[in-house]
Amino acid sequence: MNDRVVNVILAGLGGQGVLKASEIVSTVAFRAGLDVKQSELHGMSQRGGSVSSDIRFGREIFSPMVPPGEADFLVVVAPDQVEVHRHQLRPCGVLITPDAVDATKLASRRSSNVALLGVLSHHLDFPEEAWLEAIRAAFAEKLHAANLQAFALGRASR
């Protein structure tokens, strides 16, 4: 990866696993030896309110927040949150929404956060095994199968 800072925003509603997904992204970047900052406000996130998380990685990161209008990737788990965050995307940035994967094929509906990471993983320069490792580290063993399936589904969708 070159000197450029990559900015990712993950968004959704409390309970959709936005923070878990962003932990996975930042872990992958961190283990690749990059400087990483991941930032979110999660005061009352359990109660169904909007949640979003900023992840930035590259050679050296200063502000932990993605500057307004500079997200390279915007991954939104809840369809009704797209408009709330669209202004954060760069003009040629990539928007990833739940439409990107066929939800009926998910082993568990609760894994759509990880399925969208599968889609995101296409665009980032990290080896697949690094993602799988981070997913396994983020979940209890009994949830591994469902989440790995979701990731594979997302990664296979184009």
């Binding site: 509603l13 409390g14 109660r47 169904g48 309110g49 909007s50 009704d80 408009e83 709330v84 965050h85």
Partner: peptide, 10 residues
Amino acid sequence: AVPGKPPQLC
């Protein structure tokens, strides 16, 4: 600021 969805009682 674009208003998000406020938290609610479960």
